[in-house]
Design a protein around this nucleic acid. Structure first.
Length: 201
DNA sequence: TTGTGTTTTATTGCCTCC
DNA sequence: GGAGGCAATAAAACACAA
């Protein structure tokens, strides 16, 4: 096309279609976006246009409609992504807090093993009993997680932290604000199995 | 009025389908 | 091979700020 001789439209008295013409075309487009030749000819006669003009109008209209739809889908996906990203961030923070708590409690429990008395934490330990067992019992009375609970949770949370770290690596460190904008949404969306890659434009 | 950005109409070339 | 669709693009028409 570039550089080639092409029919100039400069000699054509090009005018925009009237509001009524546009309205009729829009109405038809709503029911049939790809009308048959006969319908196009009928519409052209009715509107005082060339059938070719009607055909071109539908072609351009389809193109506009398509790009509009893509825009809408993009903004919907972006909004979903933003929601997921903020949920992820909240969970990450919660996880971090829980890990900190677990660490603090674990230290407390470990220190408690050797102490006879720890009034500060209301743990009553006796040298004649299994300290950890007693600690567990007191924890139950206090309605807080027991040491064995904590150990189980520590394992779980550590696994979760690993998973989060892996997710960060896969997602290009989503958690860091400076990189969040560049996070590839396909990390979240790939499992749809659709294979569509239109969001890569 | 004019420069500039956006929208709309039209062309071109390629592709697919029958 | 012709008809019709689509993507890319040109160019006219239009909107609007300065």
């Amino acid at each position: 096309m570039s550089g080639g001789i092409k029919k100039s439209s400069r000699n054509i008295n090009r005018r925009r279609f009237s509001d009524d013409q546009i309205k009729s075309l829009e109405t038809m487009f709503e029911t049939e976006s790809r009308p048959e030749l006969r319908l196009k000819q009928h519409l052209a006669n009715k509107l005082g246009l060339q059938p070719r003009q009607v055909a071109i109008w539908f072609q351009n209209k389809r193109a506009r409609s398509k790009s509009k739809q893509i825009e809408q889908e993009y903004s919907m996906l972006k909004s979903n992504y933003d929601k997921l990203a903020s949920q992820f961030e909240a969970l990450r923070k919660e996880n971090q807090n829980l890990l900190t708590q677990v660490d603090r409690l674990r230290r407390l429990a470990d220190n408690g093993d050797g102490d006879e008395h720890d009034n500060k934490n209301h743990f009553t330990l006796s040298s004649s009993e299994n300290p950890r067992l007693l600690l567990d019992i007191n924890c139950q009375e206090l309605c807080i997680p027991t040491c064995s609970d904590l150990n189980r949770k520590v394992g779980y949370l550590e696994e979760e932290a690993d998973a989060l770290n892996m997710a960060q690596i896969a997602g290009g460190s989503l958690a860091s604000p400076e990189n969040r904008g560049s996070f590839d949404s396909s990390t979240f969306l790939d499992n749809t199995g659709s294979g569509s890659q239109w969001w890569n434009f």
